[in-house]
Amino acid sequence: MKRIILSFAVISILAACTSAPTGPTVAIMPREGKPFEVFQAEDQQCRQFAVNAVKDTSDAALKEGMTSAAVGAALGAAAGLVIGGGSHTNVGTGAGVGLLGGAGLGAMNASGKQNQAQEQYNIAYQQCMYSKGNQVPSYKAQ
């Protein structure tokens, strides 16, 4: 029972490692003559727009990490049972090894999805800010 609780604790910790983008990683500048307060309001609107645009991708990253860790633990437990010749003594060890392996694969997959979510966030943010007349790198201001 302690091993099951420990496994769920590790999965929860790993799940906490994946998160949605918290902000843009691109620099946007207000167009010349635009009051900074207006720019700040547009920034907040566009951040919310970008968050909504990547919600599904961010959720997928979280699910990917948790699913891989859980599947790895289950497969490791099964392998420990088979390798142990039906003895329950190797189930916990197999589950632990499977959890670590699954968590590692899940972290790699989740990291890829997080990068994809950040890129989509940046694109949505840039589109929104550009539509409001702000200066976006490599695009001529309206």
Rank of each mutant, 00 (worst) to 15 (best):
K140D: 04
G86Y: 07
G76C: 07
R47T: 12
A16W: 13
G133I: 11
A9G: 15
N109P: 00
L6N: 04
G133A: 08
V26F: 06
Y130D: 05
V97C: 07
L81G: 03
A60N: 10
Q114G: 12
T25A: 13
V91M: 11
L14P: 01
A95D: 01
I4F: 13
L105K: 03
A141L: 08
V38P: 03
V136P: 08
D59K: 13
C46G: 06
A74D: 04
T93G: 10
R47L: 07
A15Y: 06
G86H: 01
F39L: 06
K63G: 06
Q127T: 12
E119N: 10
A20I: 02
A27V: 15
V91Q: 00
V51K: 11
G102V: 10
P30A: 06
K34I: 12
Y121K: 04
T18P: 00
N90F: 15
A110Y: 01
A15D: 05
A78V: 15
A60Q: 15
Y125A: 07
G104V: 09
Q120L: 11
L14Y: 08
Q142W: 11
N90M: 15
Q118G: 05
C17S: 05
Q135H: 07
K113L: 12
V51L: 13
M66E: 03
A69P: 05
Q118K: 07
A70K: 03
G104W: 07
S12D: 05
G92M: 05
G94T: 10
C17M: 12
A95T: 00
